[in-house]
Design a protein around this nucleic acid. Structure first.
Lengths: 333, 333
DNA sequence: TTGAAAGCGCTAACAC
DNA sequence: GTGTTAGCGCTTTCAA
């Protein structure tokens, strides 16, 4: 069943059928009804390829994230997919991993699909030149289609960045922890991403503002595995700390496990703050105070901007979402 | 840059360029080299639409899952996407939600994309007629393209089901719990899916085999939210139990929280087993014994079958993966 | 081994 | 408001 068959059956031209399919206003209601009836009766499905060929667009958005098995990103992808579809856009998904080369290949491949826009989920795509990562592949992509980065920043004509205010939220959290009397706060991170660097900066500035020295040994980088974090902390007998700020809940729960192993009381002996407000922060014991990066809002903002850009409207190249501290039992403020 | 430009620059016909792109054997190496050089020099990218139109395939697999924010499914989608791409297939993702109508719409819409195969992730798509759900929309899809169901079963010519041995794993877990002396085991579930019904059956049969009566009140259905589960269990003062088998780790952690609130010792006073072996089972305290549904194996099996079917080979319509009990601290066997 | 040319099914510019 | 027709960029016969 193609457009010619429908046209013949309905006694109109293919142009009219096409117009009906696209709900053009310059077809009479009567004709529309007639054609629609024929289409329905024959289970007619317009050929997306032919359509894409004429329009040179498939109403598809490409989404790349390092891994959708990370909960934060999974939620984001889920939300994005659902809402984009509401706007009539499909999603094609690539999980690129974290390696530079793989990220480049992913972008290159997804561009071949003639997507209408590219969505980069995760701050690992914002590896700024300062941090040694090459971002020309993203710049290049932006020459063809608009690029949206969630939680990362790259400046560019056709690049739109949706940001979480990581700096401020960690600054505030660390300040509150300091105000509650902690003096030796550990910064626990598993990444050098744009986002992680801003969190670090917030941590350092809060310490400085309180007149506390920033020690290199208190900045611990480690793989995000609960038991691994616990064991590493246990092994580092030189390390003294009465507070932990982690860039992810998994890391923070590792610290909780460490406290338990050392029979430290939480939050009395040690205060702990995680990040992302995930299920893990409710599952652990005591339950974890966590910074909520408001992924939902970030997604919403992204989709709104995306639609505006696709409509040809002018959109800010950088937008922010404020985080929120979800207070639970691992802090005493 | 299209095929005509390349042809002109290379001094050959478009047919030859096309053959080179598709690595046809009937082009001389010499010509191939020449054409390839021109393509490379001009960053030539074949137009996927035109290509899809001729081939009537876009080398794309449609994946539908209820929600990719569920960790189990997210891992699956991640794995599937990565491996399908290795085989040269793209993925288009739909998150359908759990409602019958939404699932039907998702399938209908994704079929319009001319996908080469449909992958249904999650046992909620197997709602058997016995359980009241209509599956004709899946049967209908299978008339057009091969359909693969992960963790669900529907019989049909063009339907391939990859199954986890949920029945046996719960049967074994419940039997072990009974052997360790428990007599009042609670079955905690959040769904009536194909998979959940099989888990239930395993639970019931294990009890029966041990001569223990199956009580309706010991089968608790509840939304998968940790605090909610805890509170409901606390509220049900009539309910007595010394063991819990849950169809998901989230539910099981709710039971752990319940035990803590009641100052019950785990596993001494109450033994708990979760499902899916997620991060949550390591994050909670004490750490949760959990049944690992081997999602990775299931995915691998699915992709292997998919490729064989697409190649036109004969493939079994039902395949099983064995689960594994990951023993941690909430059980004493 | 290569080229010419006929589609594939649709959109959109143009004509009526 | 409707029809005619020229592409869109590719694959694939068919001839040479």
């Amino acid at each position: 069943m193609n457009i010619y068959d429908i046209a013949k059956l309905a006694g109109v031209s293919i142009a009219t059928v096409s117009r009906v399919v696209n709900d053009s206003p310059k077809v009479s209601e009567k004709t529309k009804e007639k054609v629609r009836a024929v289409m329905a009766a024959n289970d007619y499905i317009p050929n997306v390829f032919a359509r894409g060929m004429s329009l040179n667009s498939m109403k598809t958005v490409g989404i790349i994230c390092p891994s959708v098995s990370d909960h934060y990103m999974a939620s984001a992808v889920s939300y994005l997919e659902k809402n984009l579809r509401n706007y009539g856009y499909d999603c094609i998904l690539y999980c690129s991993g974290y390696e530079q080369e793989d990220k480049e290949i992913s972008v290159q491949m997804i561009l071949q699909k003639r997507i209408d826009a590219l969505l980069l989920v995760g701050s690992c795509y914002a590896g700024d030149k300062e941090y040694g990562e090459d971002i020309t592949y993203i710049k290049k992509a932006s020459e063809e289609i608009p690029v949206f980065i969630m939680n990362g920043f790259i400046s560019g004509e056709n690049i739109y960045c949706m940001l979480t205010d990581d700096y401020q939220s960690v600054y505030d959290a660390a300040s509150a922890m300091l105000a509650s009397g902690r003096r030796q706060i550990l910064f626990l991170s598993d990444s050098y991403s744009y986002s992680a660097m801003h969190k670090l900066q917030g941590y350092e500035d809060a310490l400085k503002a309180a007149g506390i020295p920033v020690l290199g040994e208190r900045k611990v980088y480690i793989k995000n595995e609960i038991h691994l974090v616990r064991d590493i902390l246990l092994a580092r007998r030189d390390l003294e700390f009465d507070g932990v700020i982690a860039t992810d809940d998994g890391l923070a729960v590792g610290a909780v496990k460490y406290a338990r192993a050392k029979r430290l009381s939480v939050p009395k002996d040690i205060s702990i703050i995680g990040y992302n407000n995930s299920e893990l922060s409710i599952g652990c014991e005591p339950e974890l105070t966590s910074i909520d990066g408001r992924g939902d809002l970030l997604c919403k903002m992204t989709i709104d901007s995306l639609m505006e850009v696709l409509k040809g409207e002018d959109v800010e190249h950088r937008k922010y979402v404020r985080c929120r501290l979800e207070k639970r039992c691992t802090t005493d403020f």
